[in-house]
């Protein structure tokens, strides 16, 4: 009876395992396998030829890839840290009572449901010179010429601002949820003991909201690392390689060339970086919680 029930459980699970196997695990194994081959169907020899780690050897010296990696890390750092700081301040500002809270909260949630590519298109319409309102206002008020098509710095900063616009609400709302659920007693006690604001934040608030904060930061890290759609739409990775993040690099530089072996090596390394972060999430977050349960 018990054995039969377990078998039925596996039966229920099997379509899921099959699909994730076919479109998740097998592509992963396949890309690792291809990454150790020389394979270009349009080269003199269109067959796959095993070439040890030559693709990786080329990869670690590939200026384009390394530049892309550096830009990605800078983007992730600036975007996620501003989102966390801004998100925390906004969440704190939300804790006071004021009229229209539910309404403001609803508006704040809106960007989260928007397709990344629409966010890219919205910001392209905002920032393209000749059509966007931001360059127009900047030129006429402070005389600054904002052009994301030619200035690398401007393009990078606008991508960060776009990501902050898109994803700060996620940080804010999850921190609001965490702050709302805090018990009031420790705070009252600390105020009686004469603790200042920074001490209260450092020793009471921070430890208590840590689980929600870590979860949100890791989810944001993971998502920021794979940002592609909105950047493709906004800048197309340019100018130069200023906003060519890893995903954009694969889409624009690696995929269109038919050098499959090398492209696979790039994909594997990008996945490697993501898996390491993902595993840290598991170790720091999910594992302690499930063992405690």
């Amino acid at each position: 009876m018990r054995l039969k029930r377990t078998g039925f459980g596996w039966l229920l699970l099997s379509p899921t395992l099959l699909l994730l196997g076919l479109f998740g695990v097998f592509p992963f194994l396949y890309v690792v396998w291809v990454s150790f081959h020389e394979w270009n169907p349009f080269a003199a020899n269109p067959e796959k030829v095993f070439n040890w780690a030559n693709n990786y050897r080329a990869l670690v010296f590939d200026r384009g890839f390394l530049a892309s990696l550096g830009v990605t890390l800078a983007f992730v750092f600036f975007a996620v840290s501003s989102q966390v700081i801004l998100g925390y301040l906004l969440a704190q500002a939300f804790m006071r009572d004021f009229p229209g809270k539910a309404f403001f909260r609803t508006i704040h949630t809106l960007p989260l449901i928007m397709a990344p590519i629409i966010v890219g298109s919205v910001w392209k319409l905002m920032t393209t010179p000749s059509i966007g309102i931001i360059p127009y206002l900047l030129r006429n008020t402070v005389g600054f010429d904002l052009n994301i098509g030619t200035s690398a710095l401007a393009a990078f900063v606008i991508t960060v601002i776009m990501d902050v616009w898109h994803w700060t609400p996620l940080v804010t709302l999850s921190l609001i949820a965490a702050l709302v659920s805090l018990p009031p007693d420790p705070f009252e006690q600390a105020q009686i003991d004469g603790a200042d604001r920074w001490q209260i934040f450092r020793h009471i608030t921070l430890p208590m909201i840590a689980p929600a904060l870590i979860a949100t930061v890791f989810i944001r890290l993971m998502d920021a690392m794979r940002t592609v759609d909105e950047v493709l739409m906004l800048t197309g990775g340019g100018p130069g390689s200023a906003t060519r993040f890893l995903g954009v690099h694969i889409f624009k530089e690696v995929f269109p060339r038919t050098n499959y072996g090398y492209g696979s090596a790039v994909s594997v390394i990008v996945l490697y970086l993501t898996i390491v972060v993902c595993w840290l999430l598991y170790v720091g977050l999910i594992a302690p919680r499930t063992t405690r349960r």
Binding site: Y30, V31, R226, V228, L246, I250, F255, S267, V270
Partner: peptide, 21 residues
């Protein structure tokens, strides 16, 4: 946990293998 790793993987990584497969 394994199912969630499929969700976390960057889609850009899967472009090439899925296209080839």
């Amino acid at each position: 946990f394994w199912t969630i790793t499929n969700r976390m993987a960057p889609p850009a990584v899967f472009l090439l293998p899925l296209f080839l497969l």
